[in-house]
Design a protein around this nucleic acid. Structure first.
Length: 358
DNA sequence: AAGTCGGGGGC
DNA sequence: GCCCCAGACTT
């Protein structure tokens, strides 16, 4: 009977705090159009605000609206995404823009079901667009909201497990108010990011601390429970550094898997495959090569070691090599006029090294 | 239900 | 080093 009162109690406290302390000057808040909210939400998936801001600003200058994004090439979109990670986000964003451009005349859809059907948009991102851009009462459940709710109710278990996630969604829906839903949604993210921080939570400044179960237990740092982790595997990749007067040879990666759709160095399965690879793809058999120092690259779930092998081009055989590229899957990366392509972060590092040697 | 997908921030 | 971050998608 008093559950409704309790729900308003929660959102009222959050909203009062927001009026005084919430963030109101983030780039995507200035004109919270569906397009601005959408792009920002996709960039912010698993990515911190301070990292996103410069990417968002560059992106909006180049792709100011859905149609600008839809009519651009996917390589250029990935170029603007280079360094942000999770590149499927960029390809999905581009696909969705093309869908909106061709099927909805460039007008962003207004219904939740249409929005959640867009590639790359799940339940939480769709809720954020509905709440922030349209003021409709839809809930979100991002990392911030999860942390606030896990602590407020002292919820045990990993928040990614289906049982805990289901409980959290029910709570998120319950607390989301009908009035001022845009402010409330922003407030919950701000509360999680600024006050209910992963470490070093500022509980004395939190509008909810008098009712927070984790605070009452004096065990705020224990929530949310972290994901059980396994040992991260190590992967070794042999990559080829082939430089001609046209630049560095790059190969486009398939859309699925790591660095999907990005341009990387050609990769071979083992050292014995190098000669065959050159014969097949470049119509020449290298006489010798040099192994360069390896680069390590830590990902969430594995550790990569790149072993660059520099192929020495035989004198006079460069013309044959030129026949290789450009094509759909190969290109020459010109250091003096770098093309707008997406490159994995360690390849960017390697390109910098190669540029120094040339 | 568990794995995959990246790079950077912060301690 | 380690864990996490305005999650979604595939298997």
């Amino acid at each position: 009977m008093n559950t409704h009162q309790t729900d308003n109690h929660f959102s009222n406290r959050v909203l009062t705090w927001f009026d005084r302390h919430g963030r109101k000057h983030l780039p995507w808040q200035q004109q919270p159009t569906p397009y601005h909210v959408w792009v920002s939400e996709i960039m912010l998936q698993q990515t911190q605000v301070t990292t996103v801001i410069p990417y968002y600003q560059r992106f909006m200058v180049r792709f100011p609206d859905v149609s600008a994004l839809a009519t651009a090439g996917v390589d250029e979109v990935l170029h603007y995404w280079t360094g942000l990670g999770y590149y499927a986000r960029a390809r999905h964003l581009h696909q969705a823009a093309q869908h909106i451009h061709s099927q909805h005349h460039g007008i962003f859809p207004t219904q939740w079901a249409e929005i959640v059907a867009l590639p790359g948009v799940g339940r939480s991102t769709a809720g954020a667009i509905m709440a922030l851009a349209y003021g409709q009462r839809y809930a979100i459940l991002d990392g911030n909201v999860k942390r606030v709710l896990c602590r407020y109710h002292a919820i045990t278990g990993w928040s990614g497990s289906s049982a805990v996630s289901q409980s959290l969604w029910a709570l998120a829906e319950k607390y989301t108010p009908a009035n001022r839903v845009a402010d409330y949604t922003q407030a919950m993210m701000d509360l999680g990011a600024l006050i209910c921080r992963r470490r070093g939570a500022l509980c004395e400044e939190c509008p909810l601390h008098s009712d927070c179960q984790a605070y009452r237990q004096q065990a705020v740092d224990a929530y949310p429970h972290s994901k059980p982790r396994k040992a991260t595997p190590e992967n070794h990749l042999i990559v080829l550094v082939i430089v001609s007067e046209k630049g560095l040879l790059l190969e486009k990666r398939p859309d699925t898997g790591i660095w999907g759709g990005l341009w990387s160095l050609p990769q071979v399965s083992d050292m014995t495959a190098i000669a065959d690879w050159c014969k097949t793809h470049c119509q020449f058999t290298p006489t010798n090569w040099h192994t360069w120092p390896s680069l390590s690259h830590q990902l969430t779930h594995l550790r990569l070691h790149l072993h660059p092998v520099a192929i020495v081009l035989p004198e006079g055989n460069a013309p044959n090599l030129l026949a290789v590229a450009p094509s759909a899957s190969f290109c020459w990366y010109n250091f003096d006029a770098p093309p707008a392509l997406g490159l994995p972060a360690p390849v960017v590092r390697l390109v910098e090294q190669i540029k120094m040697k040339c």
